[in-house]
Design a protein around this nucleic acid. Structure first.
Lengths: 258, 258
DNA sequence: CGAATCGTTCTCTCAGAGCGAACAGTGATG
DNA sequence: CATCACTGTTCGCTCTGAGAGAACGATTCG
């Protein structure tokens, strides 16, 4: 009885409202009834949450169909531009985008995921643009592996155990040992590479970067169609570039306050 | 007594959690106690919400200081790439960015605000990059005025009344009559212009576009430092370009399913 | 070494979240 | 054109769990 009566220390309505937001996000557009059955709740309760969300701009309602509102874009966007780490990265990314003339991106670690935070030149060469904020299992590309290589082994083990290293293409690393030895290589050479591990035919080179104050760890990545990259390109030119970028960034963050 | 006892039809905990999210957003980083005093709530209640937010990835916690998490960026980003209207706009924007070699952006109306949804070439010419998701009073630039011009007069009146047309620079239109006559001009010529109305020394040209299915209305805008724009540039070249872009988009959306 | 912070945990209580039924539109169907 | 099967929305009741406040460790500061 004691375990049943005690609440679990979380706010139930919050969990409900997040479940609703995420369900709308998955469905893109959805009605009250469908949402209620999906979440196994009463229509009236779901409706009350939706009205609250609507009042605050988190969802919009057109003829009873609900969709996510632009408030989320505003919050997500400001987050990027407000955060000192992201702001510092921004200018370096821009320079690198000009210099390399390839797609350059900045990925942040969010527990077991990588999240695309900045993407420049994303309309060159790649089939479809990478969506901002896109998240993926962190072992699946160069940026993610560069981040992993900067993490203590215990954390890497935990991530491997938690995710089980899901595959994405036939080149994705799905074996723990293979990943661990790749990480050793990355630690030695200071940068990571990937060929088609997350997206078929896409090559990328990445180096990791840590924020000194916050716990954040991210990576800068140069990406393009594999056929445009020779071995020399990768291991001399682009590898140099990303490592130079992360080094400069580290200096800037350490010595400059702003 | 009847009005006091009846709840207002909204979910209170949701309102609380949004207040918390928005307070963290404003503060960038904040602790439990400060948050509790800001919102005039008990520490324990705030703490419970924060733990719930943390569990779901909406906030992150480093040594008791709370900040917004990347989940919001993911939700906001997907929103952009999922939405049919935004996706259709994307490719047209990209073409226009190449063609004009100026900053090109796509703004959506969110009630009385304009929200930046796509920004291309934002590192050319402008002092500071425009943050994605940034929102501003809709009358303050060319894109916003183009959107207003596509709205019925009653809605315009409501927006004027609600916002009171706040100024931003010395060129911002703050008089209702001035705005109304500008809107007439925009309706005649099919495009809007602004010189330093939202940002000092920045000129832009915009045309509006409506989504047929959803209620959304947005605008495509070409923007740059005023000294780079001659009157001819504006009223022939760039104005033509944005109107061509919105026309093509309208056709694409009407006749193409995808 | 207290004093004054902080974040976190506990317990207790009554506001209000969630349920189910009733109601109001809307569109398809015989 | 009435009926039916759907919607989304509103209402009133009940019992859960959100929120207040006190107590508890951990830090930091004079």
């Amino acid at each position: 009885m004691s375990t049943e009566t005690r609440s679990d220390g979380y706010v139930k309505s919050d969990q409900t409202v997040f479940a609703i937001i995420e369900a709308i996000h998955r469905a893109e557009e959805i009605g009250v009834t469908e949402l209620a059955t999906t979440l196994d709740m009463s229509k009236s309760a779901v409706h009350k949450h939706l009205k609250t969300l609507e009042k605050h701009g988190y969802v919009v309602n057109k003829d009873g169909r609900y969709r996510l509102g632009l408030k989320l874009l505003t919050l997500g966007g400001h987050l990027r531009d407000q955060d000192k780490f992201c702001r510092a990265v921004r200018s370096v990314i821009d320079e690198l985008a000009d210099e390399s003339d390839q797609m350059v991106s900045f990925i942040l670690r969010d527990d077991v995921h990588g999240v695309f935070v900045f993407i420049e030149n994303d309309r060159y060469g790649l089939r479809k643009p990478v969506p901002l904020g896109n998240r993926y299992p962190i072992h699946q590309n160069a940026a993610g592996k560069a981040i992993l290589a900067n993490l203590p082994d215990e954390t890497i083990d935990r991530i491997i155990a938690e995710t089980g290293l899901p595959g994405e293409t036939e080149n994705t690393i799905t074996e723990a040992d293979e990943l661990r030895s790749d990480i050793e290589l990355i630690r030695d050479q200071g940068y990571a590479t990937s060929t088609g591990e997350r997206l078929e035919g896409i090559q990328s080179i990445a180096a990791a970067i840590e924020s000194p104050d916050t716990d954040q760890i991210g990576a800068i990545s140069i990406t393009g169609p594999a056929e445009h990259f020779t071995q020399e390109h990768v291991h001399t030119g682009y590898a140099e570039m990303v490592m130079e970028a992360t080094n400069e960034l580290e200096l800037r963050m350490r010595y400059a306050l702003e």
